[in-house]
Write a protein that binds this DNA or RNA. Structure first.
Lengths: 117, 117
DNA sequence: GCAAGTTGCTTCCAAAAAGTAAGTAACTTG
DNA sequence: CAAGTTACTTACTTTTTGGAAGCAACTTGC
């Protein structure tokens, strides 16, 4: 057993994974169900295909997502979360809750926001 | 109210914040209590001072951490979480739980690891 | 049956972010 | 008053990301 608040290699590794640009967004989308490459680019909006491809490979290498090729005829590739990946739902969920409570989308004007939310 | 699984600007912003290298680690340390600049560098270990300084400024700008100068005589600067920052404990905590359950520190050999954990 | 899509990437190059090392300002200690 | 400590900053290199175009393997249109 490890102390929860001392340095922890596992946490560092997890943080390195989640602490990469776009990973949180990709995970959030995949938590809603499998997606194809093009769907991910569309839903994320501003990610470059180069980086999406890279991120998906990393996540696959970490065992967080799995890649499924459906040889069609219309060939399609779907990405979905593994069990390990699905287990991240709590992290994504808590981040979402925090965001709804604390993140203000429009930083200027009408920034008044108390506990009332 | 917003749908939890559609595109959400708040989540994107939160994800952009957490999705920067070192942010998770910094937050985890500060959740244990205030820290000085040098303590953070020591506890994180491999972060460069340049980037730590940058990250702290970003977090301060986002209202997640606050900077306190104690004009000493031995001048000291302490960083601590704001209420907004402390609210992130659940996210960090869930990531820590996930890491303990799913992240294997030594990737090669003895990698067998079932539900038993 | 072949030019014109579509999908899922990859490659190339420029821009942004992070790593490394040294420097600085304001003290404190010897 | 030279040397050390703390909290950064600056300059420079390496890595990562962005943007656009290219490409292979099909499918559709005519």
């Amino acid at each position: 057993m490890e102390h929860p608040l001392t340095r922890c290699a596992r946490f560092e590794k997890a943080s390195e994974l989640m602490g990469k640009r776009w990973t949180g967004l990709i995970l959030r989308i995949l938590l809603a169900g499998p997606r194809r490459f093009g769907e991910l680019t569309d839903e994320i909006g501003s990610i470059s295909e180069r980086v999406l491809s890279e991120r998906l490979k990393e996540l696959e290498a970490e065992g967080v997502v799995s890649r499924h090729v459906d040889a069609g005829p219309p060939i399609r590739v779907a990405y979905q979360l593994t069990e390990k990946g699905q287990a991240l739902w709590k992290v994504v969920d808590e981040l979402g809750r925090w965001a709804e409570r604390w993140v203000d989308v429009k930083p200027a004007s009408a920034a008044r926001k108390r506990k009332s939310a």
